[in-house]
Design a protein around this nucleic acid. Structure first.
Lengths: 195, 195
DNA sequence: CAGTTACTTGCACTGAGTGCAAGCTATGCA
DNA sequence: TGCATAGCTTGCACTCAGTGCAAGTAACTG
């Protein structure tokens, strides 16, 4: 399955991780907007130009790999039993996102940046737009809707609504300083929609 | 109620309208991204600097007045009968948005720009984020949730889901070239969520 | 060891957006 | 009528993100 990463590939991953870590530190200290790409590159010891070889944009530092993560959610969704309901399946798929490689501290910092920087929020929402397309086909099937070339708006709306519940739950979790249980918040949000 | 607009105010509105109209023409011809602010300003006959006195950003040309429109939706929502359900009330409030001052042609052009320009999509979603906060309190009450200083995540999720249905409906309407009925699409999306 | 391949960098450029100060204009008041 | 003033317009200079290009450099392959 997973082909052995080449040396270059591993170096690249390491570099990305180091840049991201340094950037997170600067963001935490000075805020997202007040930190320039030049400062990040300088702190890591690479040129500004090289920075853009590792990350397509400043926002990418904070968003994770949109494409890869979306793909893994899609895979998780498709791995659910065929007869599972759309809501149950998408709930289970979302649960696989929880980043195991980050402390709660780091996750809260990340959430704070999402709150303080509008440009990050915007990219985050664009990411979800991408995911919408990705997850819609499977959901469409689970909703009992006939398959179509371009996704049925009902399936798209469904995925968008689920992502909205997810975001609302994460937001509330952040606002509570990590005290509330995100899973419960998500379930409550969904229940409210369906009531 | 509505205080008489001063001459200056009327001139300002007229200028904004003219700039927006010119910009729309250029966008339709060359695409959103390929049209620069300099070109727009040049075509209208004002300086680049003056353009930014009328519109805070290029995207604003295409988004309408976020704050004013959001406020009017909120007013429409609060004007609904107290005992109306959250879904019914928000549906009715959304229906007041339909811009009477634009032909279907113009609306389709607008929708096309929303599709082709990621930056516009992003701002659009940010706008909805603003609306979320604006509409949540009323919805919270209609959902039978106790009033709180910071909005209940369930109310936020509800509004976000409703906006998602709205967007999905408008998108599908656009994709059909204006043939489908947006109201029906919206209702179907909502029904799918709640099933 | 030679040749290819990929990474790094500097440079120059575009384009959005902002702050400032100077000039102009219409409005209001004496 | 004439002057003060508040608001509009503009140019200028600047910041910052992001991109294309080309030259240099390090690393892997045969």
């Amino acid at each position: 399955m997973a082909d052995t990463p080449t040396l270059r590939e591993r170096a690249r991953r390491a570099a990305r991780a180091e840049i991201a870590a340094t950037a997170m530190r600067l963001f935490a200290e000075n805020g997202f907007d007040a930190t320039t790409v030049d400062q990040i590159a300088g702190a890591v010891g690479i040129s500004r130009r090289s920075f853009f070889h590792y990350f397509g944009s400043k926002e990418d530092l904070v968003l994770g790999d949109t494409e890869a993560l979306g793909e893994s959610v899609r895979a998780a969704l498709e791995a659910r039993p065929d007869d599972e309901s759309a809501w149950a399946a998408i709930r289970a798929a979302f649960l696989t996102i929880r980043p195991a490689d980050k402390t709660q501290e780091e996750q809260l910092t990340l959430a704070r940046i999402h709150h303080e920087a509008p440009s990050v929020r915007a990219r985050h929402l664009e990411k979800h737009l991408r995911w919408q397309e990705l997850l819609a086909p499977d959901i469409q099937r689970r909703l009992g809707l006939p398959a179509t070339t371009t996704p049925d708006p009902r399936a798209l709306a469904f995925v968008a609504a689920a992502l909205a519940c997810f975001d609302a739950a994460v937001d509330a979790w952040y606002s509570s300083g990590g005290a509330e249980d995100p899973e419960r918040l998500f379930d409550e949000a969904v229940a409210t929609l369906r009531a």
